[in-house]
Amino acid sequence: MTTLSTAANAQPDTGAPTPGEAAEAPLRGMWRQGLIVFCENRLALVGLGLFVLLAGFCFLGPLFYHTDQVHTDLTQVHLAPGEQGHPLGTDGVGYDQLGRMMLGGQTSIVVGLAAGLLATALGTIWGAVAGFVGGWVDAAMMRVVDAMMSIPSLFLFMLLAAIVTPSVPMLILIIGAFAWLGPARLVRGEALTLRSREYVQAMRAMGGTGARAVRRHIVPNAIGTVIVNATFQVADAILYVAYLSFLGLGVPPPAANWGGMLSDGLADAYSGHWWLLYPPGIAIILIVLACNFIGDGLRDAFEVRLRRR
């Protein structure tokens, strides 16, 4: 609730300076034009503001709001919001819920970003190689993707969790190892179509080489799709962290993350401890929404045809 209202307040702050800046700057350059289009998308600005706000809350919040998130305090369990100086109450082992939201958010955002980027990088390379080289290499590489996709992820997560001890780097690796399949297919398709585009053929008819095709034509045209997809991957990875924690495969206490907190809160759902359930749930929804809005805005920003002069 708090985050939502602050986000609404913050929106004019992030929105206002950018159009002003755009108006005085000369309308040149690929990036600046893209920025203008991005700023025209209101939802994208809301998303960006929301993301900045949530990240600020998680990473800067603890500097101003000090809590002990290491030692349990069984004298102060299940305090309602506002009681004994805990604005959001405490959980079942006496941790301050507001401080725990900050700590949990750090894990969620770090793992989400890192795993999302890892998956995008892995998938892009795999898909690009398959798409460019084509032929049997493509067929073989894509069958690997198909095979991996056919394994239920839940089963593999549980298997992996039984083998390795969950930690933040481990979570990133595990999620990254699953999430790259989507981008791989996407980028392969993109590479296949871009390779046969007429402007690539036109360049070849001028005597250009494959390296130039990749550098000047294929990468600039594929990068938009890849970046847009990366934002969705980040959102997905944050959800994956939540799933994993929900299944009890998250980071072990005293570390926390929003998914794990949600899972714990659900156990108390019938005890009336709503402050353990709603804040992590809403935070997950907001950050995923923010990532998706940013992705939409980036898609517009990379679309040259939407640019005006």
Binding site: E198, Y199, Q201, M206, N221
Partner: peptide, 16 residues
Amino acid sequence: VQLMFQDSYAAMNPRM
């Protein structure tokens, strides 16, 4: 020898 395309829009990189 150079080629001229039917659809020049498709034959030009939209980002250039």
